[in-house]
């Protein structure tokens, strides 16, 4: 029988595991853990089917599931350091997916990651690989420098939407256009998280942010930028895809896409870019599970998921996605 193991002091009480569990195995505690958060209790252990959705959605790697003698172990490409992200922020989930891809391809010892400026500025504390902290927006340029210096290394840039699509737009487009053999993980949470919730180039029309208190006015700020669509117009071959991490199914698809992106680099095929729709419960002023629903209902219609370009097929038609 599967067993759910909760490392309660890693938990930040976001409750995403409770909402994700299809069998209602988990419920939030009424007492708090050492960090001052409520945490999930395994209320109905007998109902667990071993689906591991709780493991997938937990941004803090606080849950493992043991099933048929096998335990889901945190990836080697992540350090054990608890992450600093707000409760329910999906940066942690994306970190794990990237780390799993690195482990899965067996390239941890020849990988260099680039941390951006943004909420994930401390990513160098979490990825258990050589890391290089870039200035705001320049991760693609730093990645270019590393990859050109050492083409044998696996180089990835992990960037937010302000970092990549605003201040780092030029570096992003030109690295893609040169066909740098790097992997870019683009975390689109439709807001500037780190600086306190200002409008991002990806903020949705009408979405309230601290520098558009009445909602994004597209007549003044323009429409949110769709990076994958923009990049797919470049003639240079690339792997361009958009995924989401708002629910377990989407997370599984994201995991496959991120692995594919790294695989392209390992094979030396092309530039690879994965846009990951991500939540910012704090910046959006929503509960973590509400933020996941908001992403699904508001971001996904505007930012459709799927592969937009592959080195084999070129631009993928909308009907094929």
């Amino acid at each position: 029988m599967p067993t759910v193991l909760v490392e309660k002091d890693r938990c930040k009480g976001c409750g995403l595991c409770v909402s994700a569990c299809p069998s209602h195995v988990l419920a939030m505690s009424s007492e708090i853990n050492a960090r001052g958060y409520f945490f999930p209790l395994v209320e109905h252990p007998d109902d667990c089917t071993g689906c591991r959705y709780c493991v997938l959605v937990c941004p803090d790697l606080a849950i493992q599931v043991e099933n048929k003698g096998k335990t889901t172990a945190p990836p080697e490409a992540l350090t054990e350091k608890p992450m600093h992200y707000c409760p329910g922020c999906t940066h942690g989930v994306i970190h794990r997916l990237v780390a799993e891809a690195i482990d899965g391809l067996g390239v941890r010892e020849r990988t260099v990651g680039i941390a951006p400026v943004g909420c994930s500025v401390l990513a160098y504390e979490y990825f258990n690989v050589d890391m290089h902290e870039a200035s705001h927006g320049r991760a693609a340029a730093v990645a270019t420098g590393i990859k050109r210096a050492r083409p044998d290394l696996i180089v990835f840039a992990y960037q937010g939407d302000g970092d990549l699509a605003s201040i780092g737009m030029a570096e992003t487009i030109h690295a893609a256009n040169r066909g740098e053999k790097i992997t870019v993980i683009f975390v689109n949470n439709a807001i500037y998280g780190m600086t306190g919730g200002q409008m991002a180039p990806t903020t949705m029309p009408g979405q309230v942010a601290s520098t558009c208190p009445l909602g994004r006015d597209v007549t003044l700020a323009g429409y949110p930028i769709r990076m994958v669509e923009l990049l797919k117009e470049l003639k240079t071959p690339a792997y361009l895809t958009r995924v989401s991490v708002h629910d377990p199914k989407a997370i599984m698809q994201a995991r496959a896409a991120i692995k594919k992106a790294f695989q392209h680099q390992v094979n030396g095929t092309c530039y690879s870019f994965v846009e990951v729709l991500s939540t910012c419960p704090t910046g959006w002023g929503l509960q973590p599970h509400e933020a996941c629903d908001w992403l699904r209902d508001n971001m996904m219609p505007y930012y459709p998921l799927g592969e937009f370009k592959t080195p084999e097929k070129g631009v993928v038609k909308e009907t094929e996605r």
Binding site: V142, T144, E171
Partner: peptide, 18 residues
Amino acid sequence: AESEVAASNMLYGASGAG
């Protein structure tokens, strides 16, 4: 490079790689 900003940051990466 696409700009001197990018060039200096490429330099940052390449020198970091030794």
